[in-house]
Design a protein around this nucleic acid. Sequence first.
RNA 1: GGCGACGUGGCCAAGUGGUAAGGCAAGGCUCUGCAAAAGCCUGAUCACCAGUUCGAAUCUGGUCGUCGCCUCCA
Length: 480
Amino acid sequence: MALRIFNVLGREKQDFVPLVKGQASMYVCGPTVYDYSHIGHAKNYIAFDVIARYLRSTGLDVLYVQNITDVGHLLDSGEDRILRKAAQAQAKPMQIVETYTRAYFEAMDKLGVQRPDISPRASGHIPEMFKMIETLLEKENAYVANGSVYFDVSTDPNYGKLSNRRLQEQEAGTREAVRGEKRNPEDFALWKRAEPEHILRWDSPWGEGFPGWHIECSAMSLKYLGPSFDIHGGGIDNIFPHNESEIAQSECANDAEFARYWILVGSLTVDGIKMSKSLGNFITIEDALKQFPAPVIRYFMQSVHYSNPVDYSDEAMHGTARGWERLANAVRLARQMRQNAATGDDGGTFVERLNSLHADFSAAMDDDFNTPQAIAGLQEFTRDVNSFLNSGTTIGRNTLDSILDTYETTAGSVLGILPSAEADSGSVQRETSLIQMLIDLRMQARKSKNWAESDRIRDELAAIGVILEDRADGTVWKMG
RNA sequence: GGCGACGUGGCCAAGUGGUAAGGCAAGGCUCUGCAAAAGCCUGAUCACCAGUUCGAAUCUGGUCGUCGCCUCCA
């Protein structure tokens, strides 16, 4: 069965046929690094993480590019939002950018989001932007006004094809000062003249300034993926004007189809309303991780189809956590049984069930990355695994390996929702506590002169490399 | 005003023409020294109305309602 993707460009489910056989090129709009990442970012980037992971699992050679926006965004006041943050912190703009770029990657790492192959920064691609802007000027798709360069949307008859917006139906821009130098109210900036107080600025053929928001994605996707590539991803809230403008710039400048498949992810709300700082329902990824382990957050984000909105709430998260536990418990049980299982194929007939799970999983993911359906299949599978593991029949190590491998290649390497084996095998802190507990048990045995039990504990600990030494003031231990 | 989603059992959520997956919660039961885990059983005709069709949650039209976007946003 072939992979099908709902292409927002055209609004229909289509067979995925990559530009180059065996490869898939993907560009996803990345974050603006002016603050800590929130759970809305988590939903978005987990979705594309799973998409990239699944594409790879089918054997495709994926090249995944995701930008870091560290210049250019304007506030209503005309002030760059990164600069505003810098003023608050009395720090250099690039210091702010660096801080939140690192924080972004750290948060994503904790969520098990595999890093993109390339994470280009907008600030590092100013020359590439110049080149594209100059091309657009030469082709008269853009014009210079007072040191700024604007894209003339009236020169692109296809403008609006992604979001289905007709220019004349939109409300005119409200900023009089900005509108004054534009030919059409809908024209957007490719390059903005920097006012004196604007610290983050570059020399350009049109005077000192900084790039418009949309041009970076066009310039960087061209550089790393070429004029045409397979998949463009992002949040649905950026369909207009950002994605629409990207298409206009790139297709006018390159005379080539831009992205062939558009995958846009539904937004996340908190307790039914949009997340915003003023409402006090702004939840960072770090905050969420304090309450729930990363696999639970990933499971939650994938329990709804990526294109649909998700509502985050404590109630929903606790329900999700319980559902995840059931799956995780089965995996843990299988891991522990494997530790003591005899080698052999006992219970091998269960392999048929493994095959049917693989088939169900692939069918669900091939259908526009239907993770809710894939998870439903895993839950049914888990019921059968639990029955099997608890049935009392002898199960050989090979069979347990097969079960664990099945989980690993579906819930593990694709969805990224398995409990980590490390967490289950223990940590230094836990090991220390366990050893202390045994020492305390042994102390009780010694007090009651139960020397046989006391020596048994010491000998068995020694056998696994923990040496006990009795002192007048108590017992200490060390690794042998 | 324009664009776009959506409305499925108490909650979350798949399903886009052939008589409703899955999870959570709830109740009953099995297992069980206790606890936990696990398993079994129990529930919806799909916002409403009118059409198309042999047949619709699924297509068409309309009504009501929710949300997002049109200004920075993943």
